[in-house]
Computed example of a mutant assay.
Amino acid sequence: MKTRNIHFLLLLTAIFFGFLSSCKKDNADVPVATKPEIGTLEIGSGNNKTVKAGEDLHLEGDIVAEALIDKIEIDIHQEGGTFKFAKVYTDEKYVGKKNVTFHEHIDIPSEVPAGQYHFHLTVTDKAGNTTSVESPLTIQASDVNVKASYKLIFTEVNGSVHGDHFHDLADKDNVEPSSIIFDNTGKAVAGHAHLKPDGIYKIDFKQFDATGQEIQGQYIKDKATATLYKAFLTGGAFILNSGNNLTGAIFQPKESTYGDGSAVTGAIETTGIRSYFTAGKDNAGEKEVVFVLRKFKDPATKATITRADWNRTDYAAKYPGEDIIRLSFELHAEEGED
Rank of each mutant, 00 (worst) to 15 (best):
N244T: 13
P253F: 08
T271V: 15
N245K: 06
G248K: 02
R274V: 15
L246S: 09
K254E: 11
N245V: 04
T278C: 03
R274D: 08
T271G: 07
F251G: 08
A267R: 07
P253G: 07
Q252I: 08
F238S: 02
N241T: 06
G272P: 08
S242N: 13
S262Q: 13
G236T: 10
Y276E: 02
D260A: 13
L246N: 08
G259P: 08
A263G: 05
F251S: 07
G261C: 11
G266K: 01
G272Q: 05
T270N: 13
I250P: 03
I239D: 12
T247V: 02
A237N: 15
F238A: 04
G261F: 11
A279S: 12
G261E: 08
V264Y: 08
L240M: 15
I268P: 02
G261Q: 10
N244V: 05
G248D: 03
P253H: 07
P253C: 10
T270A: 14
R274K: 13
G248E: 02
A267F: 14
P253T: 06
N245M: 05
K281R: 07
S262V: 09
Y276S: 03
I239R: 10
Q252D: 14
Y258H: 11
I268W: 07
A267D: 14
G261T: 09
G243R: 03
T265I: 15
Y276G: 04
G272C: 06
S242P: 01
L246D: 09
T247E: 05
G266S: 05
D260R: 07
K281Y: 06
G261R: 06
F277N: 00
N283F: 01
G248H: 04
V264R: 01
F251Y: 15
T247D: 09
G243S: 06
T247K: 09
D282A: 14
A237D: 15
N245I: 05
I273F: 05
I268H: 12
G280W: 00
E255K: 10
G280K: 00
N283A: 01
